[in-house]
Computed example of a mutant assay.
Amino acid sequence: MRRLLSLVEPFILALLATIVVASLLPAQGIWAQVADRAADAGIVLLFFLHGAKLSRSALWEGARNWRLHLATLCVTFLFFPALGLGFKALPFVPPEFAIGLLFLTLLPSTVQSSIAFTAIARGNVAAAVCAASFSNLIGIFLTPLLVALLMGGTTGGVSWASVQTILLQLLLPFVLGHLLRPWIGDFVARHKGLLSRVDRGSILLVVYAAFSAAVVEGLWSKVAPLSLIMLGALCLVLLFVVLGATTLLSRILRLSREDAVVLLFCGSKKSLATGVPMAGVLFLPDQIGIVLLPVMLFHQLQLIACALIAPRLAARAEAAQSPG
């Protein structure tokens, strides 16, 4: 329980507090513009620092375990979107939730939590670093393209112009940061806390700006409590379907136990850190809040579920290694 609380808090509480503040004191008028500009600046800085952090040696080293990485990418960008399209087609799912669920399934995997859970479960940590990094790097290109391809005709805020914007706002800072890595990489490595603060702070800024706009447009009058419960149930079903699929795929591919752990945790995750800024670019202001609801619900559910699964896998690994 203590490990579960350490993973869920304090950021989840800060996220929930931000939603409450945005609901009670939404930014309006000139303050809404200030919040939007601050969020944009935070996201640019975030991706710049992530570009400076990623080493090319990690990319080359990770490319060797191609079966594991290909399986992870297929789950993330093929199996997940197929499930998203299936959920979107369900007749009882409201259109606004269907859009958010589909957007959720198009996101790349997480980095920090995937690696952390892999380490707890005694998995292949080096492979997890590479798999999560690959997913996020490819997601910068692939997620906007999938959004434009699968959602371009269903929402007013998604277009090829939006894809160009996200590539400039997210990809360009990432590339610039990576090109400047020989000069600033050591500084970023020495100040990991700075990257963590920018990471979380930028997400909170975007969430506040997004929910402020959504609240002004009447978000909570459109979402009933029972609808939220239904959305949470759908996210939970989605999570457990993918967890089961990654376990089955590991057996089909005959992956080692350590690599199977990587596929389980990296393949089942969806990145809130990437999803929030992308939603801010790809959707209209009055859409962002409700689109992000499934992303935030799924994020919390995956943390809780994996925090329960990882220690069990570690215990099994220790039991298998113990004599007798």
Rank of each mutant, 00 (worst) to 15 (best):
L243W: 00
I309A: 01
L308F: 12
D40K: 04
G100C: 14
F283Q: 01
S109G: 04
L195W: 12
L172R: 05
A307E: 12
L303W: 05
G51C: 03
H69T: 03
L219V: 09
F240M: 03
L49Q: 06
F48Q: 10
A189L: 13
L107W: 12
Q287H: 03
L255C: 05
A63P: 10
T143I: 12
V241Y: 07
R2M: 13
V291Y: 01
L308P: 01
A27V: 08
L146K: 08
G185I: 01
F298L: 08
A131K: 00
P95F: 05
W66C: 06
S133R: 05
L45R: 04
F141E: 02
L70N: 09
S250E: 03
W220S: 06
A39C: 12
A121M: 09
L70D: 08
Q300Y: 00
L145T: 11
W220Q: 07
A126G: 09
L297I: 15
A132W: 00
W183R: 07
G86T: 09
L24K: 06
G267M: 00
V8G: 04
F240N: 04
V75H: 03
T246C: 02
A209D: 07
Q112T: 08
A128R: 05
R56Y: 13
L13N: 05
L150Y: 14
A17Y: 05
A98C: 13
L264F: 00
A126N: 09
W31K: 08
S135N: 02
V129Q: 01
Q28M: 11
L49D: 05
V242P: 02
A14C: 14
G157K: 10
V291P: 01
M230Q: 15
R122Y: 10
I288H: 06
F117S: 01
A161P: 01
A116E: 07
S162M: 13
V111H: 01
M296A: 04
I290G: 01
S221C: 11
A71M: 02
G289W: 00
F92M: 14
R122L: 14
P225S: 10
I166H: 03
T246D: 00
K88I: 00
A127F: 05
P277T: 03
C74Q: 07
A224T: 10
I288E: 12
V34L: 15
F265W: 01
L303G: 03
L170F: 13
F211A: 11
L90A: 15
G42L: 07
V295C: 02
L308T: 04
F79W: 14
V163Q: 14
P323M: 12
N65C: 11
Q33V: 10
L284I: 00
A273L: 12
V241G: 04
P294C: 05
L25E: 13
D36I: 01
I252M: 07
N124C: 06
A14S: 11
A27E: 11
L292W: 10
L137V: 12
S196N: 12
W66Y: 10
Y208Q: 07
G289M: 02
I184W: 08
L146V: 06
V223Q: 06
L106A: 14
N65F: 10
H178F: 05
S133F: 09
G62H: 03
L303N: 03
L78S: 13
A320I: 02
L106E: 13
L180K: 00
L248P: 00
S227L: 14
M151P: 12
S113Q: 09
E217L: 02
L293V: 06
M230T: 11
